[in-house]
Simulated scan of single mutants.
Amino acid sequence: MKLVPLNDKVVLKQLEAEETTKSGIVLPGQAQEKPQQAEVVAVGPGGVVDGKEITMQVKAGDKVIYQKYAGTNVKLDGEEYIIVKESDIIAVVED
């Protein structure tokens, strides 16, 4: 199965949480804060949303940072995804 977002929606796959701190302390699963960093899996076509023309600024494969409580969590074929509006993405992470 494949998720195909509509309008200004973006499908994200959350990156793994850090399991150790910078000083080497191993964190149990409950103590790990969910990262707000994800990889873009699929991007909608954009179009007109609320009377404004939307041109998508991210593409599949981009690593992004999104707002903390944004989006809808979806589980498909054992994988977890987050579907957000493009406006909920606040930055693209460049290497």
Score class of each variant (00 low, 15 high):
V11K: 08
K68D: 12
V40K: 00
D8I: 02
Q57E: 14
G71Q: 10
V48S: 06
G29D: 04
G78C: 04
T20K: 05
E16R: 02
I83S: 05
V49S: 07
V43M: 06
K63A: 03
P5V: 04
G44D: 00
Y66G: 03
N73R: 13
Q14Y: 06
N73V: 14
K52V: 14
D77Y: 02
Q57I: 06
V93K: 05
P28I: 01
V84K: 03
V4R: 02
M56L: 13
K63G: 00
Q57F: 11
I65W: 00
M56V: 15
K9D: 10
E19L: 04
V41T: 03
K59D: 12
Q32T: 05
Q30P: 01
G29A: 13
A60K: 14
P5G: 13
D8N: 12
V26H: 07
N7A: 10
K59T: 14
V11F: 03
E80K: 11
D77T: 00
D62M: 13
Q67M: 11
I25Y: 10
L6S: 07
I25L: 09
E16V: 08
A31G: 02
E39L: 06
D95I: 02
K2I: 12
A42W: 06
D88C: 04
L15I: 04
A60W: 11
K75R: 03
V93H: 04
G51S: 10
V11H: 07
E33Y: 09
A91Y: 06
G61R: 11
N73W: 07
K22N: 10
V10I: 09
V4I: 08
V10M: 06
D95M: 00
D8R: 10
G44E: 01
D88V: 00
G46N: 08
D95G: 03
L76E: 06
K2V: 11
Q14K: 09
E53T: 15
G61I: 05
D50I: 09
E86W: 00
A31L: 02
A31T: 07
L15G: 04
I25R: 08
T20A: 06
S87W: 06
D88M: 06
K22L: 14
Q67D: 14
T21R: 03
V74T: 05
E39Y: 05
Y66Q: 01
V92C: 03
E94C: 01
S23R: 08
T20G: 02
K63V: 15
E79N: 10
L3Q: 09
V58W: 15
V64T: 03
V40E: 03
V74I: 15
K59Y: 08
D50G: 11
K59R: 13
V93P: 02
G78F: 03
G78D: 12
V11M: 07
E16N: 01
V10R: 00
V41E: 14
L27K: 10
Q37V: 15
G44W: 07
T72I: 15
I82P: 00
